[in-house]
Design a binder for these strands. Structure first.
Lengths: 113, 113
DNA sequence: AGGCTGATTCGACTTCCATCAAGACAGGAC
DNA sequence: GTCCTGTCTTGATGGAAGTCGAATCAGCCT
């Protein structure tokens, strides 16, 4: 191993929350699935659509993608299980909305300070 | 389709950059791979380690994980190909450092305003 | 009840991914 | 040059993920 140039805290402000505190194994296990859920172009756009309004009906999401309704449902489930969104059926339609705490947790990790 | 309750821009400040401007198909294709790269607990911790200092030697990363050196290399390559880190060999050792622009792009998307 | 529409789940298929072991490559020390 | 150490690449494999079509469930409406 080479000699370290010993710059421990100096970098804490150079980048972001990622650098501020080391991500523990537990943190990584909790946060990685959220990043993973956003790591698909379809789901990233879905999350964007949902975040853009207080709540969004699945019936508006479906026609925005060239995918079967089953696949749409699958992706929404992935976002929900990652904790990024929540949903509720009201009568005929199902509505999804963003979970600000989850977004906040990811944002805090990446935020440049 | 249900009647929309027409709340177009009002939500732009309720959440984050995700909501500020709709993520286009091209944006999604560019940004999703970065989220995907962070969507693995091992890589998230690696990114955190690398971000914590100006640059980090692979020889310091390897012993921090209970994985073969081949697997370590594979994950670092994934981070590099996603544009999140860069690397350089200097003599015997290879050093990795964070790419602040990439982190900034993700941060801007999630930042709560 | 019966039928209709919206949404989810299921089964199957294909592709991608994390991992290891083993080999290849790079660079220093001798 | 020949070793040795550090890193990367390759090949193989088991498992996860994205997709579709079909079946199923939920809730209106007549």
């Amino acid at each position: 191993m080479p000699v370290l140039e010993s710059t421990p805290q100096s970098a804490a402000v150079t980048c972001c929350g990622l650098a501020a505190t080391p991500v523990t194994e537990d943190d990584a296990a909790r946060l990685a699935p959220m990043f993973k859920a956003l790591g698909d172009p379809v789901r990233l756009r879905m999350a964007s659509m949902i975040a853009a309004r207080p709540e969004v009906c699945v019936c508006e999401i479906t026609p925005a993608f060239d995918l079967s309704s089953g696949t749409i449902s699958h992706h929404l489930k992935t976002l929900r299980e990652a904790g990024l969104v929540d949903s509720e059926r009201r009568g005929t339609y199902v509505y999804y909305w963003i979970n600000p705490e989850a977004i906040g947790a990811l944002s805090a990790l990446l935020a440049v300070e």
